[in-house]
Nucleic acid binder design. Structure first.
Length: 580
RNA sequence: GCGCCCGUAGCUCAGUUGGAUAGAGCGUUGGCCUCCGAAGCCAAAGGCCGUGCGUUCGAGUCGCACCGGGCGCGCCA
């Protein structure tokens, strides 16, 4: 690992120990994963390796004896990294655990106040992240929150690790429902002002479509005009899309997501490539006609389950568009990974599309297509989430409410603060709370939407992290210390300092895991743990009143923590404030 | 009918890929502001990890069956 020698600033302790113990196992003639993880209890040390027992089992050896052997090999190895010992001690425990305690000098070495928190990877990849992707026919509601902010966090984290990220907002701007909307827009005179409330506009169009056969016919005719490139239909369509995209963009900015208009790659953008997808599939001999439709049947998908790529009336479908998108992403965009953040209902769809893409050679074997599904939002009754009226909660309304509550809160807590600042704080705290409530949950499971929980400011929430950060800023203000004036390393002395140090050096390790699995809730859990460790340190170790040397050292811990919290929250798309 | 996901404290959720005595937050009960910010801290109570078999040194995690919930399965996206 030469990179580690050149830049001793950041690191992934788990990976480092994993490499070492794997090597030790090899010395004992064993090829097995060491399964290193953080210690399940602080008494055990900082990290533990659980892989020895499994290895012993498959070899018919005594696990404790083998663990002892590996321990010795581990201690015989060159134990240094960047000129200091990595490991303080390795112990065999229980049926064959290996407990590792990191060396304090090593910890300090990686806790330089002003050093970068993350080191760019030596193997950067091109990663396409497909997220948000709302349907432009409707206004964005709470259901769009998950894809948008989980995908955004994943994109930022991948970037922070040095990967090349290409955001793709695969908005739905094509399909039969647009005929209905455009027909309605024509009849109301084509004045954009009627689009001020997209939700209402959609409802009106829908009810007319359902009740008025003449209007329904006009809608279908509109689809035909649109798809055949009729100029006036196109102009209306563009007008509608424009208004809808502006609405989305305004919300993205309010949410603090990094999506830009340039990241929009709408479904319609793939229209011209669709016939070619069909002929390519045909060329590979993958097409089968079934009940008038063009289908692909693959054994790995269950031979009787078709992937329909062209309807019997000649029109293309969702699957066709996604296949065209894969060609574009794997080809022109040269993606190594393509990540799809969509809800789990589309799992089968993606399994099918990915399988067809692989069979058709639409992507090189090295390119991975990964669906990162998330569960649905349920109401407190465990049924799919709806308002009392049976509708959806608009994202705008949720954020308005969050900011209003946060404004009230900050006004009562900090009455002396000017109104402009209170507004800014309310914005950071309110939207932060909403985003964190969503981000902190494992994305794969369904989750319950609850106003009060989503707008909570106590406990494991964004405001808790923001508060910890603001307290550190306050510390520096009160002590009249410029954070930039600090230099050197934070050296753990007191137990609370050491616990904080071990948490601090894990930052990159957590980011690596989030990047691999697309699970930002791991970062939330980490930041909460870090803030808790900091609070413990803050309670137990007086900072400003300490003697010069100790004071400097503790300020370094505080500063390093502030930077980690701020960076971590930024990666989640959550703002920090200097006071609140 | 077939398939996918899920059932963990009163509530909302973690649980690092099979490891040690299952953890947080909210809520409840009790304590802490002459002390660097109480959006905080400390402590207590709270569990047959849906149920039952099985796999093995070891199961919340893996397999099978059942119960309960969500979702998906040929021309919507």
């Amino acid at each position: 690992m030469h990179a580690a020698l050149v830049t001793p600033t950041t690191m992934n302790p788990r990976r480092l120990l994993s490499t070492r113990i794997r090597k030790s196992l090899k010395t004992c003639g064993i090829e097995a994963p060491p399964l290193v993880r953080t210690a399940s209890k602080p008494e055990f040390g900082d990290y533990q390796a659980d892989g020895i027992m499994a290895a012993a089992k498959s070899l018919g050896k005594n696990p404790r004896a083998l663990a002892e052997q590996v321990r010795k090999a581990c201690l015989l190895q060159d134990r240094q990294c960047d000129g200091v010992d990595v490991i303080e001690s390795v112990d065999v425990a229980g049926p064959g655990f290996l407990n590792v305690r990191l060396n304090d000098e090593f910890l300090a070495r990686h806790l330089e106040v002003d050093a970068p928190l993350v080191e760019p990877t030596v193997r950067p990849q091109t990663v396409v992240v497909d997220y948000s992707s709302p349907n432009l026919a409707k206004e964005m509601h709470v259901g769009h929150l998950r894809s948008t902010i989980i995908g955004d966090a994943a994109a930022r984290i991948l970037e922070s690790l040095g990967h090349r990220v290409i955001r793709q907002n695969h908005v739905g701007d094509w399909g039969t429902q647009f005929g209905m909307l455009l027909a309605h827009l024509s009849e109301t005179g084509g004045d954009s002002r009627v689009l001020a409330d997209l939700e209402e506009f959609y409802r009106d169009a829908k009810s007319r479509f359902d009740s008025d056969p003449g209007f329904a016919d006009a809608s279908r005719a509109m689809v035909v005009s649109l798809q055949s490139g009729d100029e006036t239909a196109r102009a209306r369509w563009r007008q509608f899309i424009e208004v809808s995209l502006d609405h989305c963009q305004a919300l993205y900015e309010r949410l603090g997501t990094s999506l830009a208009r340039a990241d929009v790659m709408a479904e319609s953008a793939y229209n011209d490539g669709l016939p070619d997808v069909i002929s390519a599939l045909d060329g590979k001999g993958l097409l089968t006609e079934s009940e008038g439709a063009q289908c692909v049947f693959l054994p790995e998908l269950g031979s009787e389950l078709p992937v329909i790529v062209r309807k019997s009336d000649g029109a293309f479908l969702y699957a066709t568009t996604d296949l065209a998108a894969i060609r574009h992403r794997a080809g022109r965009l040269a993606a190594d990974r393509v990540l799809y953040f969509t809800d789990s209902r589309q799992s089968l769809h993606f399994r099918q599309v990915f399988a067809v893409a692989a069979a058709a050679g639409f992507k090189p074997p090295g390119t991975t297509l990964e669906h990162m599904p998330f569960g649905n939002m349920l109401g407190t009754d465990r049924r799919p989430f709806r308002t009392r009226e049976g509708g959806v909660v608009k994202l705008t309304d949720l954020l308005n409410e969050a900011e209003a509550r946060a404004f009230e809160e900050v006004s009562s807590r900090s009455p002396g603060m000017g109104e402009a600042e209170r507004r800014a704080v309310a914005r950071a705290v309110g939207t932060g709370a909403v985003k964190y409530a969503d981000l902190s949950k494992n994305r794969t499971s369904d989750y319950v939407f609850d106003w009060n929980r989503m707008l909570a400011f106590d406990g494991n929430t964004a405001p808790y992290l923001q508060y910890a950060y603001a307290r550190i800023r306050s510390l520096f203000r009160r002590g009249a210390v410029e954070p930039e004036s600090l230099e050197g390393v934070a050296h753990p002395e007191a137990p609370a300092e050491r616990a904080l140090a071990v948490a601090l050096v894990r930052f990159e390790e957590v980011l690596d895991q989030v990047a691999a699995e697309g699970m930002p809730h791991l970062l939330c859990g980490y930041l909460h743990d870090l803030a808790t460790k900091f609070t413990g340190f803050y309670e137990q170790c007086p900072i400003l009143g300490a003697d010069t040397g100790e004071r400097e050292n503790r300020l370094r811990f505080a500063q390093r923590t502030a930077r980690t919290l701020k960076t971590g929250l930024e990666l989640l798309g959550i703002e920090t404030v200097d006071r609140m």
